[in-house]
Amino acid sequence: MRLLPVCMGLLVWGCSAQGVGARRAPEAAAAVDGREVLVFEGMCDASGAVALGGNLFVVGDDEDNILRVYDARRGGPPVRSVDLSPDLQLPAAKKKAPETDIEAATGLGSLSFWLTSHGRNSSGKKAPSRLRFFATEDAEAGPRLVGRPYTRLLDDLLAAPRLARFGLEAAETKAPKAPGGLNIEGMTAMPDGRSILVGFRSPVPEGKALLVPLLNPVALVEEGARARLGEPVQLDLGGLGIRSLSWWRGRYLIISGGTAGEGTSRLFTWRGGEDAPVSVESVDLAGLNPEAFFTPEDAEEILLLSDDGTAPVDGVACKRLKDASRKRFRGVWVRLPGTP
């Protein structure tokens, strides 16, 4: 088992006298600073994941429309993968299908739900392909679409009277990482087993993160029903927005981060209701860019999945690599204080 080295305090794939490079990803876990680190191959930008049972999870990449299934204990290449581009009713393109910018995922019953950013592209231009809410079910050949992708969630959010005070209509006109731009990156099933909680990375109204319950997610994809939205919630995460959400063992887990990628992400727990979120100071996220969780209920630890799209591999940002076999992202197992 090879040890993943530490360079300048950051967890990286390989170090040399010339700087940070890439080594072949080990399939087994390696301990670094007391943490267990895995390297997953074939993609860089882990953005949302769902536990499938056992050690398997399915993960989305915000740079393509492929869902990949990995072994959470072994790492390495995907067990199986499926490109959902033909099923997502995307605008016609000359070369390849436009990316949907998958940013969040959650399991609900037997289904996996996926949510795209619902923002504009980085230049501030409208991007219809990024308006998708859809569901899949696991199959032997890989995830397959259930029902039809829902494309009107942004319209529902902008039309909801209870959300008017948050300025979403103005936010939607801006690039996602511009100050006050609209960008959705968090989603998790709620304890009632029927609803989903949606978390905004941006905007952060009055310096507090915004969460909105979606009360009828199944009806959106199976019937094309319009979204029913619950009472919004604002949480004080130190001025940060939401990068990822998960419900695990009676509490919400929240990865928070800057709206434009600035600063270091932080991990919070929140029991819902009037309780205040609690910062988990014992988990150091320096050197990681966590944007997804693998949180099986029967595990005593959680796996944080890092979006490593901008991490250098032989001097090239991982997401810019032409050879998909050289792409990889990291996962770090952590134990939360107070875990039963």
Rank of each mutant, 00 (worst) to 15 (best):
R2K: 06
V6W: 07
C7G: 11
M8L: 15
M8C: 14
A17D: 13
Q18P: 07
A22L: 10
R23E: 14
E27R: 15
A29N: 01
A31C: 14
F40T: 08
N55V: 10
D64N: 15
A72V: 06
R73H: 02
R73F: 04
R74G: 12
P77Q: 13
P77S: 14
R80H: 05
L84G: 05
L84V: 06
A97K: 03
P98S: 02
E99H: 07
E99Q: 12
D101T: 01
A104P: 06
A105S: 10
L111H: 08
T116H: 00
T116N: 04
H118N: 13
G119E: 01
P128E: 05
P128R: 04
R130H: 15
P149F: 03
T151G: 05
R152K: 06
P161I: 00
P161K: 01
R162D: 12
R165I: 06
F166W: 11
L168K: 01
A170Y: 09
A171N: 07
A175C: 15
A175L: 15
G181H: 03
G181A: 09
G186E: 07
G186L: 09
M187V: 14
R194I: 15
R194L: 14
G207H: 12
A209L: 03
L215P: 02
A225C: 03
L229G: 00
L235F: 04
D236H: 07
R249N: 07
R249C: 03
R251T: 11
I254F: 11
S256W: 04
A260M: 07
G261W: 11
T264R: 14
R266Y: 07
G272Q: 03
S279I: 13
A286S: 13
E291I: 07
A292R: 08
F294G: 06
E297R: 10
E297I: 05
V313Q: 01
G315K: 04
C318G: 11
K319R: 15
S325V: 14
R326L: 15
R328D: 05
P340K: 15
